[in-house]
């Protein structure tokens, strides 16, 4: 049986259910690299070009882990997934970077996905789907059916996210039956939005488990993936200039939406050191949060593994929020 490797990094947290179901439906075996760990980080840092951001380096590590274990590695070249928008340059160049940085790779399925001028129903996209599937089986009707099934799984995944399930959990359960989820109504003292690129906020190794740390303190965690699509479009359109990065739009739109609708008590931005897109997004969100009197803090991730730095900042942030909460009346005089 044909084995397809999917590295657990970059767009994994957005599309895993779609990709995995698609290849499995075609009859391939899907192999996913394990959660990021020290070994993967080290091999990624060694093989990747020096100037890259941490998640790209880790992605290299995941590919390196998979390379001897599978027949193909799936790294689509996702250029654009929405009209007039682009993905981050590192995502555009991901398959090429990997190919030239890591030796002895199995063939890479680097399907071009460019929907800058087309939609999901266009023949161009259908062709891309066929391109991805043909390595497993050269049968267009089977590929079409597999994609349809995969799309259903993907919709179930998106539904879970909209119900407030964190992607790490949702990836485990999208295929199981679920009745009532009500994640949003669980008891909590305060809610914090953890915002940033999915590969920063859901990689538990890189961010030293920040989401579980917050949940264990009785805090409800919100992430951009839980915010309704239409809300994101509506609030990101408030920017004076169009945001042409898909992820930038999602991050800014979701944060603006939660701030404006008063659904969060604080915002923690997780950014990887050296991210160009983040440098703009952080400022946009920080200004908005300040305007509305919502506490904001930035955590920069790089290769550090000592947790003291992150813990101190998170603890101080929560202390500050509680302190402000207690003296609610004083805040209005502030800004």
């Amino acid at each position: 049986m044909c084995k397809i490797g999917i590295p657990r990094g970059m767009l994994f947290y957005d599309y895993y259910p779609l990709w995995a179901e698609f290849f499995e439906e075609l009859g391939a075996k899907v192999v996913v690299s394990p959660k990021s760990n020290k070994e993967i980080l080290n091999s990624g840092v060694l093989s990747c070009v020096d100037e890259c951001c941490l998640p790209v380096k880790v992605f290299h590590g995941h590919v390196d882990y998979l390379k001897d274990k599978v027949d193909y590695i799936f790294i689509p070249k996702i250029i654009s997934i929405r009209k007039m928008e682009y993905c981050c340059p590192k995502i555009l160049g991901l398959p090429d970077m990997v190919k030239f940085s890591i030796e002895d790779l199995p063939p890479i399925i680097d399907t071009n996905i460019n929907l800058r001028k087309n939609s999901y129903t266009s023949s161009k996209y259908k062709k891309a789907v066929y391109e991805a599937g043909k390595c497993v089986i050269k049968n267009s009707s089977k590929i079409r059916n597999a994609y349809k099934k995969a799309e259903e799984s993907y919709q179930r995944y998106l539904y879970l996210l909209s119900k407030g399930v964190i992607p790490i959990e949702a990836i485990k359960m999208y295929n199981k039956t679920f009745v009532d989820l009500n994640y949003n109504s669980k008891k909590h003292d305060m809610s914090i939005m953890v915002v940033g690129h999915p590969y920063n906020i859901y990689d538990e190794y890189l961010n030293m488990n920040i989401i579980s740390k917050l949940i264990n303190k009785g805090i409800k965690v919100m992430t951009p993936e839980m915010v309704n699509k239409d809300e994101i479009i509506y609030y990101s359109a408030q920017l004076p200039k169009r945001m042409f990065w898909t992820y930038g739009r999602r991050i800014v739109g979701s944060a603006f939406s939660l701030i404006e609708r008063d659904e969060v008590d604080g915002i923690i931005y997780l950014s990887s050191f050296g991210c160009g897109i983040d440098s703009i997004l952080i400022d946009l969100i920080e200004r908005k949060a300040k305007n509305k009197g919502i506490p904001f803090t930035l955590l920069t991730l790089d290769e550090q593994t000592g947790e003291a730095g992150i813990d101190t900042r998170v603890e101080a942030f929560i202390d500050m929020m509680k302190w402000r909460d207690k003296d609610d009346f004083n805040i209005s005089t502030l800004r």
């Binding site: 050191f273 506490p295 803090t297 790089d302 900042r313 942030f317 500050m320 502030l334």
Partner: peptide
């Protein structure tokens, strides 16, 4: 600090 409450803080990054 405003009115005896911490309202904002920052620490150096990397």
């Amino acid at each position: 600090i405003r009115d005896g409450i911490v309202v904002d803080f920052a620490m150096n990054t990397v």
